Computed example of a mutant assay.
Amino acid sequence: MTELAVALARLHARAFADPWPEDAFAQLLAQPTTRVHAAPHGFILTRLTVDEAEILTLAVDPERRRAGIGRGLIDEAAAALAAEGATRLFLEVAVDNVAARALYAATGFAEAGVRRGYYARPGGAIDALVLSRELKLP
């Protein structure tokens, strides 16, 4: 297990009720298509495939939210992915995640579809919105 995978898993556990385990991060980091951008108190993990990219997860320490960390990570990742040839960036977000949806809307994402029953919850599965935005070189 790499130190990076351990650190990402620890922060992810602080940020999410159903966090990813260390081995999931280790497997993703071992893939040549995975990109990680980290900042103090947050990180974004993306995957690049030809000209499309996907946000796999974005985590910000709960005590540091609403301080611009998430927006900065999205902007940094989007610019880097565009520089590598990506023209569109996708993600899934739970329909009930109001804060994340507001952040994504503020950073240029728009609804592209719905994945029914995508997220398992104690009371039953809920839908995910598929969001996307165009990427351009600055």
Rank of each mutant, 00 (worst) to 15 (best):
D51H: 05
A83K: 00
V50S: 03
E111L: 11
A82Y: 00
Y104Q: 09
T107K: 04
A5C: 07
Y119P: 13
G123P: 13
R64C: 14
E54D: 11
G108V: 06
E22A: 12
Y104I: 10
D18Q: 15
L8R: 00
E63G: 13
L129S: 02
T57D: 06
A82N: 00
R66G: 11
G72Q: 01
E111H: 03
I44G: 08
I74L: 11
D127V: 07
A99T: 14
A102S: 13
L89Y: 04
S132N: 13
R65H: 03
R133W: 03
L135C: 09
R133F: 05
V114T: 13
M1E: 14
A5T: 03
T34N: 02
E54L: 05
R66T: 04
T87H: 12
F16K: 08
A26R: 02
L29T: 04
N97P: 10
Q31M: 12
E76T: 15
L29C: 03
A7Q: 12
Q27K: 15
E111I: 09
V36S: 06
V50N: 08
R65C: 13
V60R: 06
P62V: 11
R35P: 02
I69W: 03
R115Q: 04
E92K: 09
P40F: 04
R71D: 07
L89V: 04
A112Y: 08
V98N: 10
A38L: 12
D61C: 00
A94W: 02
L28Q: 11
N97M: 06
R10W: 10
A38M: 08
V93S: 10
D96F: 13
F109R: 08
A39F: 12
A82K: 00
P138W: 00
H12S: 07
H41P: 12
T57M: 03
A9N: 05
A110R: 15
A78N: 00
Q27G: 14
R121G: 14
L48I: 05
V36F: 04
F109V: 06
A120H: 12
E63S: 13
A99P: 13
L137W: 07
A106I: 04
R116M: 09
V93R: 03
L103P: 01
A125P: 14
P122V: 08
L91A: 02
L29V: 03
V130C: 08
P62S: 07
A53M: 06
